[in-house]
């Protein structure tokens, strides 16, 4: 495992921890899209079905369990916690699941490398992860006074994607048989989706102003 991959995983983990701390600490999930969180949970479930059949390393198994556990916890808090659920911006979080899930499913069925349940679901998870942030970005545009933690959450998530691309470039040159067009294409698309957000994030940081995305 190279340094980019490890740093990417840590950013990913940190983003989730930041979000969990925000939600449980201030008892508020204002500005957070439940749709994005549920889509990520679906991504993890469909991707990590191989958790007991395909052992890679203790690190991988532990991280998979942590991602499944923490994203389940986030969805649980937002949906069922007596206090936290009252702070969810349900009326603003209007993105349609089907708009992201259906194309991902069709593409997975059309392009899966092998037609086994695990492989098709894994391919589905790659497509879905690429677009799962969209409800969150739309919600951010609609939210006035985005708090720092929400901005940092999306920033950390975007950093994770950027670092994974560096990891792939590194592996491309150091591993002979490392050729994964599907994963790379989706990863690049996913990172491009963040570009606009990054631009305004850095702008607000540079000017020492609160983050606000133009509608």
């Amino acid at each position: 495992m190279n340094v980019f991959r490890l740093a990417g995983d840590m950013m990913h983990l940190l983003s989730i921890v930041v979000l969990l701390l925000k939600i449980t600490g201030i008892k508020s999930c204002r500005g957070i899209s439940l749709k994005t969180q549920e889509l990520y949970l679906l991504v993890f479930i469909t991707r990590y079905l191989d958790i007991f059949t395909n052992f890679v390393s203790l690190y991988n198994t532990v991280m998979k369990l942590v991602f499944l556990g923490t994203s389940s916890a986030i969805v649980y808090y937002m949906r069922y916690d007596r206090i936290i659920k009252l702070t969810y911006d349900k009326e603003q979080d209007t993105f349609k699941y089907l708009l992201l899930v259906a194309p991902s499913a069709v593409l997975a069925l059309a392009t899966s490398h092998v037609y086994t349940v695990l492989e098709v679901l894994w391919t589905f998870s790659i497509y879905l992860e690429a677009v799962a942030i969209m409800p969150q970005l739309v919600l951010l545009q609609r939210t006035q006074n985005i708090d720092n933690l929400t901005g940092n959450y999306v920033f950390l998530l975007g950093s994770y994607r950027g670092l994974y691309i560096l990891n792939w470039i590194y592996r491309f040159f150091t591993e002979k048989h490392y050729r994964q067009w599907l994963v790379w294409t989706c990863g690049v698309v996913q990172t491009i989706i963040y570009c606009d957000f990054f631009y305004y994030y850095f702008l607000s940081w540079q000017n020492n102003e609160k983050l606000a995305l133009p509608a």
Partner: peptide
């Protein structure tokens, strides 16, 4: 392509 290589990533 190699369908299993990326399964070592998260």
């Amino acid at each position: 392509g190699s369908e299993t290589a990326s399964k070592d990533e998260l």
